[in-house]
């Protein structure tokens, strides 16, 4: 299989999204905002007004806190940029997507195919995973400038809403498609065929744990 490279806008057309295939390498252009638990809680639970026009300004939600600082003169020092694991945000994402029209969820490790089928596909959205993890320096280079940092006072630097101007920012990998397929689950299934030989001759622990699975085709997310 040859790997295909694609440049994609952070306000992508439905056609551009439909064209993406699992395993494509994507580079992003346009505005992307960071939002993780802090932003989700403030916008969805505390009902604070989102300080951006979404999705017209950006339809790309990055599960990220950058290694960055705000200087005394108000300028930004953007260092490395990598994502945090997305599965923990499943609780807020359906409502967030409905509210903001996000089409690209960008993070670490993807979601389950059930998440994709339940609310990604109906919203015409797909998941892009960061690479590695993490190619922090490469992604940092793809940030042309910091447009704004919202809710820094309320949430702190790591949870604030950073608005990043991306210029061929990447690489990212397409991890879901509009049919609801999941790249990571596809890989899990392939690997599952071989697991038995690696486990041959091992034995389960004498002392068990509540809720424990011994089925290695399961995931922990």
């Amino acid at each position: 299989m040859s790997i295909r490279e694609v440049r994609l806008s952070t306000t992508p057309t439905p056609e551009a999204i439909a064209d993406l295939r699992l395993g494509d390498i994507v580079y992003l252009d346009g505005l992307m905002y960071t939002a993780r638990e802090g932003v989700y809680m403030r916008a969805l639970e505390d009902k604070a007004n989102i300080p951006m026009e979404l999705p017209s300004q950006s339809a790309a939600n990055f599960h990220c806190s950058p290694a960055a600082a705000i200087r005394e003169d108000g300028s930004y020092d953007m260092g490395a940029v990598t994502a945090t694991a997305s599965f923990r945000f499943a609780k807020w994402l359906p409502e967030w997507m409905a509210k903001t029209g996000a089409k690209l969820i960008v993070g670490k490790g993807g979601m389950t195919s059930k998440d994709y089928r339940d609310y990604f596909v109906p919203n015409g959205a797909i998941y892009l995973t960061t690479v590695g993890y993490g190619t922090g320096a490469l992604l940092g280079r793809g940030v042309e400038r910091v447009e704004a940092v919202h809710w820094n006072e309320e949430l702190g630097l790591a949870q604030a809403m950073w608005v990043l101007k991306c210029n061929k920012m990447g690489p990212f990998i397409v991890a879901s498609d509009l049919q609801g397929n999941c790249l990571f689950e596809r890989e899990n299934a392939k690997i599952a065929e071989n697991i038995a030989q690696a486990y041959e001759g091992t034995r389960p622990a004498t002392l068990k744990r509540y809720g424990e699975t011994d089925d290695r085709s399961d995931e922990v997310i």
């Binding site: 990220c64 490395a80 990598t82 993890y133 993490g134 992604l139 940092g140």
Partner: peptide
């Protein structure tokens, strides 16, 4: 770039 290798 003298930039951190990972954002985390």
């Amino acid at each position: 770039d003298r930039r951190a290798m990972c954002g985390d």
